[in-house]
Design a protein around this nucleic acid. Structure first.
Lengths: 245, 245
DNA sequence: CAGTATCCGATGCGATACTG
DNA sequence: CAGTATCGCATCGGATACTG
C-alpha cells in the first residue's frame, strides 16, 4: 500500500518524491554530486543500503540516470530532464524552509563534515590564483577527530577538502566554533558580527585575511530572510510594528 | 529519529512536508476545503485518526490554523501565511506529476467520489442562472451505490453534490463511464473525441447539452502536456522526431 | 459532525558486517 | 570505491469501533 490510489498528479508526484531521504538525495544530485560516495557525504546519516535503494527507485521513476563514468571506473548518477525540472521545486522547498522553519542549530544538526562539504562545493576556485592556497579550519567545539579541516584550492586544480593534514604549508588559519561557522553559512549571523564578538579569528597574511569575505560563500539559501516570528532572534522594526510590540 | 539531523533548509522543510498524506491534505486546504469532513472527501483512503494527526502536526508547524467556524458550530482549518506560500510548491508538484508521472488510470485510481468532488469544486456557479439546474451523472462501470451523482447548481445557492437522488427534476443527464470521465477531467482525452467515439452521451435540452463544454471544467492540471515518452498514448510528430522513430 | 481510542500487522529503516 | 546482505526493532499507519 505504497500509493495513494488517486489519479491526481500531486499524488502521483508525491508517491515518487516523499519517501524518507529522497528529496535530500535529489538535492545532492541537483547541486552537482554524481558519485555514490559523494552523495553519501551529503546525507551522512543515511545508510548505504538505503541510499542505493533510493537511487534505484529514482532511476526506475525516470528522475535520474545511472551511467558509466568516464575512465571505465564505476558509475555516475545524473538527473534526467524530468529530474532537472525538479530543481525549482527543491529550491522553493529550501527557500520556504529558510523563511519558515529555519534550523535552530541544535547540536544534532551541527556537523562539521556536512558543513565543510557544503563549503567546498560552493567555493569558487576561479577566485584563487594558480598558486596552491591552503586554508585550515579549526572548530574548537568539534570532536577531536573532526576538529581540523583543510581546504586546498588553486585556480587550475579546483577545490579539495581534507580531514587529515595534507602536509602543505597553511596560508590561512580560521579559528572558530561549529555553531558560529554554521550560523555564518546559513546567513543567521553577519561575518562582521562574528569578528566583532571574537567568535572567529584569522591568522595569516593581511591580504588573505581580507579576501576571506570575497571567496567564503554562504549557503545558496543564506540570503533568504526569516519570516517566522517565533524563530526570530532579533526583530527588525518593521516586524515589531506588524506584531504591535 | 524523525528528522534528518541537517541544518539545511531543504531538510527542515521536508521534515514537515513529506510525511505520508501531508501534501495531499495541504492540497485540499489550498484548493479550498476547510472542514474536517470536507478534507476527508479529498483523501478518502486516509483514516480519520491519521487525518487528525496530520492536521495537528501542520498546526504545530505553523502551516495551518484551527479556528472556530462562524455560527458556533465546529472548527475550520485554514492555511497561515506560511501555508499560503506553499501553494506554488504544490502547484509545481502537480505540474511535474502531470508532465512526467501521469496516472495510468488503473482501476484503483478511479474513484467516482473523488472525481465528482473535484468536479464540484471546480464548477463555477456564476455560469448558471438563478433557476436551479440539476445534472445527473451516471457511470456505467461504477459500483451500484456510486453509479449516479447529482450536481445541483444555481447562481445564488452555489454547487451542491448528492449521491442520493435529491428529488428535483433532472435537466441534463450525462451517461458515461468512470475511466472516460476521469480521462476527460485530466485532459487525457478531448471532449470531442469522447463524443465521437460514443464514450459519453447526453440527454436534455439542446442548449444545455451545448453549454456543457463551457461549464464542465477540467482539472487545474488538465492542460499540462505529458512529457514522458514511455507514458504517451499517441506521440506527436515533434516527439517522434526527437526519439528518431 | 468531528473527531478519539485501541489494536495489531506490515515494513521501513537503522545498524552492522561483508564483498567484488 | 561502490555498493550488498542480513537482521530485528520501532513505528507508521490501516481497520474498526466508539464518543461528545
Amino acid at each position: 500500500m505504497k500509493g495513494y490510489g488517486q489519479y491526481c498528479p500531486v499524488a502521483k508526484a508525491t508517491e515518487i518524491l516523499n519517501e524518507r531521504w529522497t528529496l535530500l538525495v535529489l538535492r545532492e544530485l541537483l547541486f552537482g554530486s554524481r558519485r555514490f560516495n559523494d552523495l553519501r557525504k551529503g546525507v551522512p546519516l543515511m545508510s548505504p543500503t538505503l541510499l542505493s535503494k533510493r537511487l534505484k527507485f529514482l532511476e526506475e521513476s525516470g528522475v535520474i540516470e545511472r551511467c558509466r563514468a568516464e575512465p571505465g571506473k564505476g558509475w555516475e548518477y545524473q538527473p534526467t530532464t524530468a529530474g532537472q525540472e525538479l530543481r525549482p521545486l527543491v529550491e522553493m522547498l529550501g527557500i520556504w524552509g529558510q523563511r519558515w522553519v529555519r534550523s535552530r542549530l541544535t547540536p544534532d544538526e551541527l556537523d562539521p563534515g556536512l558543513l565543510m562539504w557544503d563549503i567546498r562545493r560552493c567555493t569558487d576556485a576561479k577566485l584563487f590564483t594558480s598558486r596552491r592556497t591552503v586554508v585550515q579550519f579549526e572548530f574548537s567545539d568539534a570532536a577531536p577527530s573532526k576538529r581540523r579541516w583543510w581546504l586546498v584550492v588553486s585556480d587550475k586544480d579546483g577545490v579539495d577538502l581534507c580531514l587529515t593534514d595534507p602536509g602543505f604549508e597553511v596560508d590561512l588559519y580560521i579559528f572558530t566554533d561549529l555553531r558560529t561557522m554554521t550560523a555564518l553559512w546559513m546567513g543567521d549571523m553577519p561575518l562582521r558580527h562574528a569578528f566583532d564578538s571574537g567568535r572567529i579569528e584569522l591568522e595569516g597574511p593581511p591580504e588573505l585575511r581580507r579576501s576571506l569575505q570575497s571567496w567564503l560563500q554562504r549557503s545558496p539559501f543564506g540570503n533568504v530572510q526569516n519570516q517566522n516570528p517565533k524563530r526570530k532572534v532579533s526583530l527588525d522594526t518593521k516586524t515589531r510594528r506588524q506584531l504591535r510590540l
